[in-house]
């Protein structure tokens, strides 16, 4: 038996993934919430099968609908039993930003030995709470500011400028999905990108060679 075992961490270095999911009432239209549930389940299944990576992918799901709340706490993907998301209420995106910032800043949840987190924002509308100061707090947070970020706008009512501000990088693209199929495409792309990161020599570096699916639109 390894003598070093008593001096070393017993769990792999985590690669945290936080999904900020819009669960406002409008997501119940046109099968959007069902598509999102399927896409999230597929993503978690794929992460669960990633056992040859350098990192262990951990996921959290933060929803913003009737309230902003932690739907699924940060947990190894292989141990998550996803409870389907419902869709009701408004779009308190700012509350979700605050929950995400608090989680990323919590060194108990995301230790320094973790790889840089990824935050995925999915929304089909305009936030209706005090989202701007909450976004500023997120982007000003030293740890959260380092996070890799993806954004998906669903449908014609998605506010691309809000999503672009979340990305905080003029070179980063906000993607658009017009239907359920494109929602799944976006999450397949996120899944491939993160799986590739977890297998790379340095999981902090964005994966190369994982191109976004051609059937996604750019919102800007």
């Amino acid at each position: 038996m390894s003598k070093l075992k008593s001096f070393t961490a017993s769990n792999a270095r985590p690669l945290p993934v936080l999904v900020l999911a819009d669960t406002s009432g409008s997501m119940s239209v046109d099968g959007k919430i069902d598509a999102l549930n399927t896409a999230l389940a597929d993503m978690l299944d794929a992460f669960s099968e990633e056992d040859d990576g350098k990192a262990e992918i951990h996921c959290a799901i933060i929803t913003f609908g009737s309230t902003a709340q932690l739907h699924q706490d940060l947990t190894p993907a292989s141990k998550i039993e996803l409870q389907p998301l419902g869709a009701t209420g408004m779009t308190p995106m700012g509350g979700a930003f605050d929950i995400a910032r608090t989680m990323v800043e919590d060194k108990g949840k995301i230790p320094s030995r973790a790889y840089t987190p990824t935050i995925v924002l999915v929304s089909d509308g305009m936030p209706n709470d005090a989202w701007e100061p909450a976004l500023e707090r997120l982007l000003d947070s030293e740890r959260a500011a380092k996070a890799q970020r993806f954004a998906l706008g669903i449908g014609d009512d998605a506010n691309a400028s809000v999503l672009q501000r979340f990305l905080n990088d003029p070179g980063a693209k906000v993607y658009g999905a017009q239907d359920a199929r494109q929602i799944k495409s976006f999450f397949r792309w996120v899944t491939m990108s993160l799986a590739s990161r977890s297998r790379s020599a340095n999981p902090n570096v964005s994966a190369l060679g994982v191109l976004p699916p051609s059937d996604l639109d750019e919102l800007l």
Binding site: S2, L4, T8, K54, A55, A201
Partner: peptide, 13 residues
């Protein structure tokens, strides 16, 4: 030998 049989899961370095 101890370094080769590193106990933390998913170690690759």
């Amino acid at each position: 030998c101890e370094l080769r049989h590193w106990p933390t899961p998913h170690h690759t370095d």
